[in-house]
Design a protein around this nucleic acid. Structure first.
Length: 651
RNA sequence: GCCGCUGUAGCUCAGUCGGUAGAGCAACGCAUUCGUAAUGCGUGGGUCGUAGGUUCAAGUCCUAUCAGCGGCACCA
């Protein structure tokens, strides 16, 4: 039998018979290691302890303390343990797939009756029994046909389908613990007892389609989360509670920002406080766009279907459009219109007025474009995903040669805005040509290269998102990370060769002939509604001073200070600060609590001491210390703070 | 759109076996003038999401429907 040499992380080398398993290797080092071992990393690949190693390799034995392999295995084994528990309780349930996901796993089942929350408890209990049994995990490799026959015999149609999708000559790895079996790539733990019994929790049940295809069977998906130990699980559950606390729907009510109601699903009733955030943000964006060389336009909401037919939306996007038909009796002629779901076709109409010269390009046309889309009911989510929204949209009409410079210019514009709004970093995803696309390969090569080169030239890296481009061109997506680590895709830049063609946009070149401009579709915030939702959640309602709808509350401690409080508010308002008065017959504790919950950044409390000394007692949100400041000083300071970041730069 | 769950006062929620609606906070009134996260007492407030049905009787059971929530699909 031939010998192989294994190299350990500390550089030591040992010789073994070829075909040795990591389990044997661990045992050759120490019995305790063999017991603790969960898997091995062999030449960088994650290996099951039971797999044979046939050639020289580097090897590391993993234990539960090694986070990456441990979490992978725990979650993966739990997926199997859960599937086994379900089938032990309900033998007629069909199993499908159960992958590891962020923080845990899920498994999709086919079962006629829905799983109830009580069922989850029963499953969890059964899982703990399986873990307590410390059932050894064993594996074999089978021919594909044997596996297919096995699953046919066991009446597991989904597994049959999965195996059939594997090439006929490929070996199939089968896993068992107890009597329960599953098809699996592996690796797995040594025995079920290696899963931390108090480190996991079943979270919820949801519908999911077989193979993600909405035309196929609807399955039931059970989600679980799992960690190396109880403490980490608890920390995760606490983080979820934190996220729930900053839910923009809850904060929107508490801060009195907006509401939504049945009669207008997916549309927002902005209250004064919320609308103040909106207009402050919009004013900011307008200033930035003006500085960035954009012209602003405004275009119609209700537009004849003819334009949508010409643009391609009628064919490609009709399901998502609100169609407006006017009753014939009242209409001079029957017309079918649609609420605009996008601004681009209208912008081309503006562009097409009059003759454009190459001297006019690049023409950067912006609109705070109010759009309506009939989103599927299940897609609606607070103010983040709505049917009526406003994009900070713009279309840059330019020549192909200008794509690169405009891309660079836009990324700089966008990163500046994100920084001002409190997001220091963002990632870029580059989506290239999809299967279904318009335009020649040569044009795509050109567009993709221009986008890529420009992004790199601007000094940014990107992640490739293959095949996810729009049908008319490649796109960049800008993803920012919020205060609790969640990613949000906000900005986008898309290269479009198709729409200028369809809507016959052109310009006169240096040669005196007509040429086709390229359109760059771009947005920074995406939509005001969604972005405000992100701001609320990221800041947990504690918006930066300049964006806070109610910046200051001046609260009287005793009613003899009322007149002075009025004077303080007037002084603040005279400097443009959004200050409110609270003269209610309540204790200062009550007022502080209420305005703190309302996320007002600054509370100025005034009692007789302040009246006599012409000062205020200043308390900032989130701090429980106060400071006494001269009235004139506080007005100057807060006026400085309320200046938007872009105006500060100019000062 | 699909699967599951939910819908009771402005908000958060209770409501048993089907017997005719309840709490806390908020609001309003009175008292209290108080020093940095809830002062006390009192008063008013509900077609139980909507529409049907079963029943002597429906918040409760059934059907339909609307909306919301969690996922899936969708997100140009």
């Amino acid at each position: 039998m031939s010998q192989i040499t294994l190299t350990f992380p500390d550089g030591n080398q040992r010789n073994y018979d070829a075909g040795v398993t990591a389990s044997d290797v661990a045992a050759s080092i120490a019995t305790s290691l063999a017991k603790k071992a969960i898997s091995a990393t062999v030449n960088g690949a994650h290996y099951d302890l039971a797999w044979p190693i046939d050639a020289d390799a580097t090897i590391a034995i993993n234990t539960l303390k090694d986070e990456t392999p441990a979490l992978e295995l725990i979650r993966h084994d739990l997926a199997h343990i859960m599937a086994r528990a379900v089938q032990e309780i309900w033998p007629d349930v069909k199993v499908t797939i159960g992958p590891v996901i962020e923080n845990g796993w899920y498994y999709d089942f086919d079962r006629a009756e829905p799983f109830s929350p009580e069922d989850l408890g029963a499953i969890e209990k059964k899982m703990r029994d399986i873990i307590a049994a410390r059932d050894p995990v064993r594996t074999e490799t089978w021919d594909r046909d044997r596996a297919i026959q096995y699953y046919r015999d066991n009446n597991e149609p989904y597994k049959v389908e999965l195996v059939e999708a594997i090439p006929a000559d490929q070996q199939i790895r089968m896993y068992w613990h107890g009597d329960w079996q599953d098809l699996c790539r592996g690796p797995h733990l040594q025995h079920t007892g290696q899963v931390p019994a108090d480190g996991f929790k079943l979270m919820n049940v949801a519908g999911a389609y077989w193979r993600g295809d909405s035309s196929r069977a609807q399955l039931q998906r059970i989600y679980g989360v799992a960690f190396q130990n109880k403490e980490q699980l608890k920390a995760y559950l606490t983080m979820l509670e934190e996220a729930a606390k900053r839910d923009h729907r809850k904060l929107g009510r508490e801060m009195d920002l907006f509401h939504m109601q049945e009669e207008a699903p997916g549309q927002i009733f902005w209250h004064p406080n919320g609308w103040k955030i909106y207009t402050t943000l919009q004013d900011y964006m307008r200033r930035q766009q003006t500085r960035g060389g954009y012209v602003e336009v405004n275009t119609p909401q209700v537009v004849d279907r003819k334009l949508w037919e010409a643009s391609g939306h009628w064919e490609k996007y009709q399901e998502n459009m609100f169609i407006v038909e006017v009753d014939e009796e009242h209409a001079r002629e029957k017309a079918v219109n649609a609420l605009k779901p996008m601004n681009c076709p209208c912008h081309v109409q503006v562009y097409n007025q009059g003759l454009k010269s190459y001297r006019d390009l690049p023409l950067r046309m912006a609109e705070f474009g109010s759009c309506n889309r009939y989103e599927p009911s299940g897609a609606l989510h607070g103010i983040m995903r709505v049917r009526g929204f406003t994009q900070d949209d713009a279309h840059i009409f330019c020549t192909e040669d200008q794509i690169e410079a405009e891309t660079k210019r836009f990324i700089e514009f966008l990163s500046n805005v994100y920084r001002d709004l409190g997001f220091e970093s963002f990632q870029i995803k580059f989506s290239d040509r999809p299967e279904k696309r318009a335009g020649s390969d040569a044009v795509w090569d050109k567009a993709e290269n221009a986008l890529k080169t420009a992004t790199q030239a601007a000094g940014y890296e990107f992640e490739l998102n293959p095949g996810e481009g729009a049908f008319y061109g490649p796109k960049l997506e800008f993803v920012l990370t919020d205060a609790i680590g969640r990613d949000w895709q906000c900005g986008t830049l898309q290269v479009d060769f198709v729409l200028p063609e369809r809507l016959d946009a052109n310009y006169i070149g240096t040669d005196g002939n007509k040429h086709r401009p390229v359109m760059l579709h771009r947005a920074v915030l995406g939509s005001f509604e969604r972005f405000i939702g992100i701001l609320i959640e990221s800041f947990a309602g504690k918006l930066p001073f300049w964006l806070a709808p109610r910046q200051v509350v001046v609260a009287a401690i005793v009613s003899d200070a009322d007149d002075y409080c009025r004077e303080v508010v007037a002084a603040l308002q005279a400097r443009g600060i959004r200050a409110e008065l609270d003269l209610r017959n309540e204790k200062i504790n009550y007022k502080v609590r209420e305005h703190s919950l309302g996320k007002v950044p600054v509370i100025l409390a005034c009692g007789m001491k302040e009246v006599e000394q012409r000062t205020v007692s200043l308390r900032r949100l989130g701090e429980n210390k106060t400071s006494v400041v001269d009235l004139s000083q506080v007005v100057t300071d807060l006026a400085g703070e309320s200046v938007p970041p872009d105006m500060k730069v100019l000062l």
